[in-house]
Amino acid sequence: MMVPNVGLTQFLVVSAIMFSLGIYGVITRKNAIMVLMGIELILNSANINFIAFTRFGLMNLTGQVVAIFVIILAAAEAAILLAIVLNIYQQLNTVNVDEVDKLKN
């Protein structure tokens, strides 16, 4: 089997770019569901790191098991966040995070 030129660094760079894009989305988006999509990008990039280190590092399968737990947490978080967003939409008729400021007054 030929040793490929693509190594650990390439995967980590892809993950770093995805992480930065996710942070950008979380910071700039007003819609709460768009913020959730940014968070999903961040979690996915973390998972790529875990699995890349499992493949190229010296840590057996531990990284993949941690990645499974990350996916589980992402699912739970998405469900709760969407429930909260639906409730906010029913109460305040908006899903923009900058307009939900009832506690300010």
Binding site: I51, I71, V85
Partner: peptide, 28 residues
């Protein structure tokens, strides 16, 4: 993930993210 030879995680990714979380997001 498939290129990193993590077959189980790749399938889990498709099932859970595409089949679960993305559908939830679109519902939202």
């Amino acid at each position: 993930y498939v290129l990193l030879s993590a077959d189980f995680i790749a399938i889990t990714q498709i099932l859970l993210y595409v089949g679960g979380i993305l559908v939830l997001i679109i519902f939202g």
